[in-house]
């Protein structure tokens, strides 16, 4: 494992912790898209079905469990917690995420590495992860104002994607048989989706101003 991959995993982990912290500390999930969180839960459940059949490392297994458990906890809070549920911006979170699920499933059935149950689920999870942030970005754009922790959450999530690209570049040059174009192409698409957010994030950072997205 190289430093970029590890740093990417850590920023991914930090993003989830920031989100849990926001929900726990403020007892509010305003500004957070429940649809994006449910898509991530689906992404992890689909990708990590290999958790009992495939062993890569203790690190991988623990991270898989942490990602599944933390994302399910977030979804549970947003749906089931009496106080948190009330702060959910339901009227702003109207992205039709079922289309994303359907499109990812169709694409996975067409483009995959092997026509097996696990490989198709894996490809599906990769495609779905690439677009899962869309409901969140649309929600932020609609509400205009982005609170501090929500901004940090999306920032760390974007940083994770950027670091994974560096990881692939590193692996491409250091590993003789490195080939994973499905993950790389999807990863590039996913990272590109953050470009607009990052632009305004750095603008607000540079001007020391509150993060605001144009309508």
């Amino acid at each position: 494992m190289n430093i970029f991959r590890f740093a990417g995993d850590m920023t991914h982990l930090i993003s989830i912790l920031v989100l849990l912290l926001k929900i726990y500390a403020t007892k509010s999930c305003s500004g957070i898209s429940r649809k994006t969180q449910e898509l991530y839960a689906l992404v992890f459940l689909a990708r990590y079905v290999d958790i009992f059949t495939e062993f890569i490392s203790v690190y991988n297994t623990i991270m898989k469990i942490v990602f599944i458990a933390s994302t399910l906890a977030i979804v549970w809070c947003m749906r089931g917690h009496r106080v948190v549920r009330r702060s959910y911006d339901k009227e702003l979170d109207t992205f039709r995420h079922y289309f994303l699920i359907a499109a990812s499933l169709v694409l996975a059935l067409l483009v995959h590495e092997k026509f097996t149950f696990q490989e198709i689920l894996w490809a599906f999870s990769i495609y779905l992860e690439a677009v899962a942030i869309l409901p969140q970005l649309v929600l932020l754009q609609r509400s205009g104002n982005v609170d501090n922790l929500t901004g940090q959450y999306v920032f760390f999530l974007g940083a994770y994607r950027g670091l994974y690209i560096l990881n692939w570049i590193y692996r491409y040059f250091t590993e003789p048989h490195f080939s994973r174009w499905i993950a790389c192409v999807s990863g590039l698409v996913q990272t590109a989706l953050y470009a607009d957010f990052f632009y305004y994030y750095f603008l607000s950072w540079k001007n020391n101003a509150k993060l605001k997205l144009p309508a």
Binding site: D50, E54, I56, S57, M63, H177, S179
Partner: peptide
């Protein structure tokens, strides 16, 4: 060329 993809990334 042997394709290696054991899904070792998260």
């Amino acid at each position: 060329l042997k394709l290696i993809n054991n899904h070792d990334e998260l």
